[in-house]
Design a protein around this nucleic acid. Structure first.
Lengths: 101, 101
DNA sequence: TCTATATACTTCGTGTTATGATGTATTACA
DNA sequence: TGTAATACATCATAACACGAAGTATATAGA
């Protein structure tokens, strides 16, 4: 998909991926990739950003000798998803415009 | 609307605005703004980009003492719109994912 | 006549962001 | 021994939206 089109949905996509269950980087990539291709560097950048803006909380856990960072969605994160749903209405208007008013 | 969400649709939005009739910067802003807010600097940046990628052709015309640059969509531009419509299907899948698989 | 306001386009600097490349480290299996 | 899978991190780069500021003309109203 066009790189520009991705922006703005990627963040929310990651939030959605952990909405129902805490998850970690490697798993999130596996879950999101079939729907929307993203690289490791992109994902970890996003996770850091979402953490900084308090939409996610992190807990590091040792799993089979490796560090695993589990991400948990916060209220802010849930709000962001709701906000996105509202923005979507606007997006649909724009789409109609593009199809030919 | 979220700045990131705009990217990827702005270009196509501008193309759509001149699809049926040649237009110029000032008018394009007026036409697109009700649907999707954009500033002058943004618009002219986009127009330049679309011209460079051969999606638009420009013709400068003197209108009431002022220069007016009329933009005409090319075949490339029309293709871009069609491409966008295809990408939209993918976007809808992502949207479903966000809503909760 | 003076002054907004509308018309019309341009340039620059800044901040945000996706991504490829590269690196580190462990476990599992052939 | 080697190779794939697991798991996360960092850096440099390029694309892009946007505010700010600038240039210039026409027109309507005070």
């Amino acid at each position: 998909m066009d790189a520009q089109l991705k922006r703005g949905i990627l963040d929310v996509c990651v939030l959605a991926a952990i909405k129902n269950e805490d998850s970690y980087g490697y798993k999130i990539i596996k879950d999101v990739k079939p729907v929307l291709d993203l690289s490791e560097s992109t994902l970890y950048t996003i996770l850091k950003r979402l953490e900084e803006s308090k939409m996610l909380e992190v807990k590091a856990i040792i799993h089979e000798g490796r560090v695993r960072k589990y991400y948990h969605i916060t209220k802010n994160g849930l709000n962001r998803i709701e906000e996105f749903k509202n923005e979507w209405k606007k997006i649909m208007e724009v789409y109609s415009f593009i199809l030919g008013e």
